[in-house]
Amino acid sequence: MNKELKILAIIIILVGITYWGIEPYAHSKMHPHHEPATFKYEDLKPLPLKGDAKRGAQAIQNNGCTGCHSIKAAGIPAPMDPVSASASYGVNPPDLSNIAALIDKKFLANFIKHPVKAFKLEHKFGANRPFPMPDFFGSDQDLADIVAYLESIAKPQEPRGAFETACGRCHNLRYDKWTVIGPKPKFKNEVEKADFELKKAKYEANLKKYLGTTPPDLSMFIRSRGPEYIRDFVENPQKLLHGTAMPRVGLTEKATEEVIKHLEHVGDRKKEKREKLGPWVLAYFVILSILAYLWKEKIWKELH
């Protein structure tokens, strides 16, 4: 028995060393360490002024925001359908109803003022290739009022809503029947289906022209990238994938968690079942091992 335990110990040590070498150690060499996301957006300056939501409702009209953006919560419709919008701007501009529930307040103000800088996309957009949303020309007080207004109308977002607003205009999520132009409806006939597919294809072509690449479908990202990577990547894409066309979208920590929750629901739908079944199966084999040991002892007793 003693000898068998010694053999087992040697095997465990050798397997342990090998495992450590090919998994944690090798992966630390393949993916160099980076600082985890803080969601503080420290390179941006906070807005010194206090905003007024009522004045903001007016300012958002005066400054031309609604020329491109819808605010459905305030009854302001989108000026264009998604496909035409993508033809004009590259991507469909977001509805602003709940934007402040997802995006960091400081980031939002900075973004409105200098979109490209906040997005960290200076390598993609500049004087030669202007960003579709212009820098803010209004006063700082207007800006503060607009942010206050957006905050006043925003409703807290469920995981799905967070994903659709924050990611869903560039990324498909086919395992959740989500497309860049909205949820995939049930088609009544082939014409409807072909019509929808054509719209989606047009939108995706415009998006590709705008970004220089087709953003990936995120259905399996929870398994292919894992929650930590997604979290750190969303906070600052350039840090993990230098030169990527993906903007820093300025999500709050909570909104990022909501997005990850949704991706987990879509890409690892059986996680809960897996974690619930695991202990039962393990317990079964623990009991079986005990019984098997007793049986073995009984049979081998007469041999020694």
Binding site: L277, G278, L282, F285, V286, L288, S289
Partner: peptide, 17 residues
């Protein structure tokens, strides 16, 4: 059978976790 049962604990631990 005993060795196998113990091995199965290890195997299913990997399968689930």
């Amino acid at each position: 059978f005993f060795v196998l049962s113990v091995f199965m604990i290890f195997y299913f631990y990997l399968v689930f976790y």
